[in-house]
């Protein structure tokens, strides 16, 4: 069975919970080498003809994801790689639509550091877009891999307004093998970095929009087992194998007093994804809702 024909490999509940907590997933070397080589040529051709009628494969906004980059496009084959297709399906659904894409090229010895930013404009929606970052060749440390701030996706900021932070403790810069795909929540802070290497760094980014509620689109075979009730409470009895256990992870740059507000944001998103309005992490939402119900009669 060829890569293009293999069924998508959906995400697990733990992977989805990790995406909710940290705002990204990293799929290392999931695209085969032959696709990476062909995609490199295709991306260079797209970049060279950007904006012109000569551009190969020019999708339109709102075009179904299933229709963009048809065979024999290497970019299309990347998108239909089982692990990539499964992640996209799990997060935005099989009927997601194309928003836009771009080919990012960082030449050797490019010293430019891009300010931290969130793409598009400030977007507090609970439903979310995703952006996939595909690296068709190896990227060594310092060779211009994208930097990003794990756990920043719920921070409501507009585009480059977070550029005032030159460095954030715990930020990461991508380095890794060819065929790696990062998938970001639309709100994740990120930016381009200098390329201190001796070769250009190529990266392809595509934004996708969901067209239906993103409810239970992943492999939910283990969801009932992992989904916790409000009785899973860090200050009472708690589990190590629940969704809440994954969502409790923190980031080194969170302020002391904001850490729990991040838990509230994660719980709200997990309620949406799991279709379970009673879900909670450490009772913060449940406690407030219960009292509000009393006062509101």
């Amino acid at each position: 069975m060829s890569t293009a024909e293999a069924p998508p490999e959906l995400l697990s509940t733990a992977e989805m919970a990790s995406f909710v907590a940290r705002g990204y997933l990293r799929l290392d070397a999931v695209v085969p080498d032959d696709v990476n080589r062909a995609a490199t040529d295709e991306l260079e051709a797209i970049l060279a003809t950007w904006g012109s009628d000569a551009r190969p494969h020019a999708p339109s906004t709102l075009q179904p994801l299933t229709d963009v980059y048809p065979e024999p496009s290497a970019v299309g084959r990347m998108l239909r790689t089982p692990r990539v297709a499964g992640a996209l399906h799990s997060l935005v659904g099989a009927d997601a639509v194309f928003d836009h894409d771009f080919v990012h090229r960082r030449d050797a010895d490019d010293p430019t550091t891009q300010w931290l930013h969130a793409d598009a404009i400030i977007d507090p929606s609970l439903a979310f877009d995703i952006q996939a970052f595909y690296f068709p060749h190896d990227v060594a440390a310092g060779e211009g891999g994208t930097r990003f701030v794990p756990g920043s996706h719920f921070r409501q900021v507009n585009e480059a307004d977070v550029g005032r932070y030159q460095h954030v403790v715990g930020e990461e810069q991508f380095a890794g093998p060819a065929g790696t795909v990062l998938i970001f929540h639309h709100g994740l802070w990120h930016g381009a970095m200098p390329n201190q290497g001796d070769r250009a760094r190529l990266m392809y980014k595509i934004r996708l929009n969901p067209t239906r509620p993103q409810v239970r689109l992943w492999d939910t075979g283990d969801l009932d087992e992992m989904q916790n009730g409000p009785d899973d409470h860090m200050f009472a009895r708690f589990r190590f194998d629940s969704v809440a256990a994954v969502l409790r992870s923190t980031e080194p740059w969170y302020e002391q007093g904001t850490d729990r507000l991040e838990l509230v944001q994660r719980a709200r998103l997990w309620r949406y994804l799991s279709g379970d309005d009673t879900f909670d992490v450490d009772y913060y939402l449940t406690r407030i809702e219960a009292k509000a119900a009393l006062a509101d009669g």
Partner: peptide, 9 residues
């Protein structure tokens, strides 16, 4: 009250 945004301190 539950919004998170810029770094506070």
């Amino acid at each position: 009250e539950h919004r998170v945004a810029f770094l506070k301190h």
